[in-house]
Design a binder for these strands. Structure first.
Lengths: 70, 70
DNA sequence: AGCATAAATGCATTATACTGCACTTTATCA
DNA sequence: TGATAAAGTGCAGTATAATGCATTTATGCT
């Protein structure tokens, strides 16, 4: 899944785990306001912010060389 | 490759493509100072910044659910 | 419908990424 | 070894992510 879909990835994963934004904020040690911004898609978050949320949600961010067939 | 190795990924890829930091900065529309920070690893860049550089270098950032065997 | 919980929005403040400029240090040559 | 290019560093200004608080809107349940 491409990084541009990060907002949906986060929201879907959070709902799969049945936690609300407030809980995710606490677990991630990130402000609730920031979680909302993340999920809204209108955000340009810092990589550390993303990493913290992904850690809690069991998501991982990867980087690789783009292949011919992508 | 995990996102925590982004600085090496960028530097290695840049050298593979035989361009210098200044060229990468221009092509990415990002300040030279920021490129240097990125490659030094002492950075917490915004996702858009990362994306611009990766676009030029032919790198892609992916997100996925962490599996049991990772 | 009425109530409770979750989520969205506006605003002000703080923290810090991003930037350019000037300078230093380190490679890479002829 | 001297010249040139590339990379690293310090600093100050600007842009914006991150945050909290208060309020509003949406969602779900009995």
């Amino acid at each position: 899944m491409h990084i541009s879909d990060i907002n949906n990835a986060i929201r879907n994963r959070r709902k799969t785990l049945s936690i609300n934004q407030s809980d995710l904020a606490d677990l991630s040690q990130i402000g609730l306001r920031t979680i909302k911004a993340l999920e809204s898609g209108a955000a340009n978050p810092r990589i550390n912010t993303l990493q913290k949320v992904c850690d809690v949600l069991g998501l991982e961010i990867l980087i690789r060389v783009k292949g011919p067939g992508d």
